Amino acid sequence: MFYPNSPQTSPQLTQIPYGQQYAMMQRQIQQPYHPFATTEPQARLYPYHYQGPIQQEQGGFITQQSTAASPQYVQMRVTPVDQSIMSGYPNQTANGSSSSSFNYNIHPQQQQQQQQQQQQLRHHAMPVGSVPLQDDRYRKQLIVNYLAPDVTSTDLHELFSRFGELDGARIIYDKQTNMSKGYGFVYFCHAEDAKEAVERMSGYEFHGKWLKVGYSTNPLNIVPSNSSPYVHAGSRGAAG
């Protein structure tokens, strides 16, 4: 039997160049792979992502010199942007860049009308829970959420009447099932009393439920100042 490094198959040491006398086997001759043993700084910083320098080929596509990437890492192929796409944008300079302001050559009167329309939209648009300043009635009506099913309009009136005089209180019921929808409205005579009720009743436990109280901004629920107070009856038909 002959071994790869046996004296019968191995040459004389004098015939082997210096430095390879003890590297006779194939696994010894093959050098191990060192990912950080390279002179390129990109490979030292990113050993798993770097795959060699990027070269520009004919046709405008950018390719990489090395083989496919590892399945664990996804390499994105980048193509140059066609400058003709950006030619339609206004205020574009000769080098292809555009300024931040756009001039669509709008007539001054049209621009003024658009600004007025935007101001009107901001004036009428009102986020949930906010209180408008032009109508004091919005500051007097509250919406009470997360009410228990057994709470009546009379219970709601008695709960909030300790903060001040009320114009009314009612629970909203479903017309088909005649069941409470879980929320109601309270109408105060003074805005200061309503503000105190919002601050003190939010998070209050009532009939096993934690109440959420806020201003009601729905104009359909506003009680006119010259109208008669609501009837605080315990029956659902009268309260709904």
Rank of each mutant, 00 (worst) to 15 (best):
P4N: 08
N5F: 14
Q8C: 09
Q8S: 07
T9D: 09
S10D: 11
S10V: 14
P11Y: 15
P11M: 07
Q15Y: 06
G19V: 13
Q21R: 07
Q21S: 04
M24E: 03
M25Y: 05
R27I: 15
Q28W: 15
I29A: 02
Q30F: 14
L45C: 10
Y46F: 10
P47W: 15
Y48G: 05
Y48H: 09
Q55E: 08
Q56C: 05
Q56D: 03
G60D: 07
F61P: 03
I62S: 10
I62Q: 04
I62Y: 14
Q64R: 03
Q65W: 13
A68E: 04
A68W: 15
A68V: 12
S70W: 15
Q75L: 15
M76G: 05
T79H: 13
P80L: 09
P80G: 02
V81T: 06
D82Q: 13
Q83R: 11
M86T: 03
M86H: 07
M86A: 08
P90L: 13
N91S: 07
T93M: 15
A94C: 13
S98G: 14
S98T: 04
N105D: 07
I106S: 04
I106R: 05
I106G: 10
Q109H: 14
Q111H: 04
Q113W: 15
Q115N: 10
Q119R: 10
H123G: 11
H124I: 08
H124M: 12
M126C: 15
P127I: 14
V128P: 09
R137E: 02
Q141L: 00
I143R: 00
I143Y: 00
Y146C: 00
L147E: 07
A148N: 11
P149D: 02
P149G: 07
D150F: 12
D150H: 05
T152C: 06
T152Q: 09
S153V: 04
L156K: 03
H157L: 05
F160W: 09
F160M: 02
G164T: 01
G164K: 00
L166P: 08
L166F: 07
L166E: 01
I172F: 00
K175L: 05
K175P: 04
N178G: 13
S180P: 11
G182T: 06
G182V: 03
G184Y: 03
F185Y: 00
F185D: 00
Y187T: 00
A191K: 06
E192P: 08
A197K: 00
V198S: 03
E199G: 08
R200I: 07
S202K: 04
Y204W: 06
E205A: 13
K212D: 00
G214L: 01
G214T: 04
Y215R: 00
P224M: 13
S228N: 12
P229T: 08
V231S: 09
H232T: 06
A233Y: 11
G234D: 02
G234I: 01
G237D: 02
G237C: 06
